[in-house]
Amino acid sequence: MESPSIVCIDDEPAVLNALKRLLRQNHRDWEVYLFTSAVEALVRISELKPWIILTERNLPDIEPERLQEALIESAPTAIRAILTGDRRRETLLASAWQAHFVIRKPFDREVLENLMTRARILNQLPLEQDTRVQLGQLRALPVLPDIYHALTAALEKDEPDIKEVANLITHDQILVSRVLQLVNSPFFGFGSRTNDIEVAVMRLGLQTIQSLVLVLELYRGDQPSVQRIADMLLHEALKLATQVGLVCDSQGLTKNLRSQCVVSALLHNIGQLVNARHLLEEAPRSLGKEELLREYELIGAYLLELWGFEAEIIDAVRHQLDDPLADDSEPVTEVLNLALRMLQGRYEEPDQPSEQGCAEQ
């Protein structure tokens, strides 16, 4: 495996020096390359093969969009992160479409540590290099939708406002209709119907509504043929989420664990969605059905890692088909794996001890 490396591009030497100090303190095994010019960095980027590319958004020698396009071509497997001191929402959303992460200045050590940890995990995933390159070069790789970023910003406040969250959702009538359709469906099991999005937010809770909005946006196709496949995959995800909910209830899991389990079910087939949208070319080898499903698992885990989801959810998606499951698996992984086996008819009830055996004990 190649040594981990990071390329930092910023026209302010003070920022580069601060980055260098942070990196040298705890990550001496990383190669660090600093550039004050984007043009100079692009000349060398292919040979450096960085795991991470950290760039200032507004550089004097190149436009942000052109820079990101060039980086996609030159280093498709790298994590691209944009540094910006601009706190306007429109800048944040525009940057989110151009790169995997947006980091606000001034940044702290924890943000950088998180980025480097994710880079290590992504490089350890057993994905074929061709698949990594194809994912990195997709111009329409699913990124977290604008509404999801806006909801995240609202929920990060000390006291999130339900009215503000509801107002963000009401800006998209299609999203409103889908949220109300689901909140009134047997899936969530509420006793009475509602046509008020604010009531829906209160019923579901802020964390659940955030995850639900993400799923509905990701599964919104831009072509009829793609939308049919997306609807089918969403139906499968909701069906699995229902089964997951039953398993959680039977095991008496906490609210937080239940939420993680449901989110992992809703996103368990995101790798298939990417394949349906972009028809990723398979490597020149014949893949059986099981191998192909494993490939989808890894693509899903890759995306969720890029999006910054909790490790428990990522592990559950990655190991959803494992049989047998590792003894040290986390509860979220166990629940998703069990629910999937139950739906697929692969679950066998554990043998019950006989009455004689019980008496002897």
Rank of each mutant, 00 (worst) to 15 (best):
L267S: 04
I209R: 00
K157R: 13
L141F: 01
P224S: 06
I270D: 02
V335H: 06
S259G: 14
L48A: 07
E56R: 15
N184R: 09
Q272S: 13
R139L: 04
L19W: 02
E360D: 11
L67E: 01
D29I: 03
T333I: 00
V335E: 05
E310V: 10
A276Q: 02
L34D: 12
K239V: 06
Q207E: 09
S177W: 04
Q320N: 11
W307T: 14
C8W: 01
A276P: 13
R294P: 15
A316R: 00
A230Y: 00
D158C: 15
R228H: 12
L141W: 00
L279K: 12
G191M: 11
Q98D: 01
R44C: 07
T242A: 15
F187D: 10
F190P: 10
D29W: 10
L71V: 02
A359W: 09
A237Q: 00
V215K: 08
T208I: 06
F187L: 14
M342W: 07
S3A: 11
T170E: 14
V32E: 06
L321W: 01
V262L: 07
A153D: 03
I53D: 02
L304R: 02
A237P: 02
T152M: 05
L135R: 01
S329C: 05
G300W: 00
E349T: 14
C8Y: 02
V43G: 12
L168W: 06
V165G: 02
W30G: 13
D327P: 11
H171N: 14
L92K: 15
Q129E: 14
E355G: 14
V176L: 04
L325K: 04
R203G: 08
I121K: 07
S5H: 04
I82N: 02
E236R: 05
E334K: 11
D351K: 14
E281H: 15
A200S: 04
Q124N: 12
L325N: 04
T91E: 08
L298G: 10
L214D: 04
D86Q: 07
S5F: 07
P324W: 00
I229V: 10
L325S: 06
L325W: 03
Q352L: 08
G345P: 06
P64F: 04
P331N: 05
G205D: 03
E360T: 13
D172E: 07
L336Y: 06
L266F: 05
E290N: 15
D351E: 15
R228M: 07
L204D: 01
I270S: 05
F190V: 12
L180N: 04
R88V: 09
A14R: 10
V247Q: 13
R104H: 15
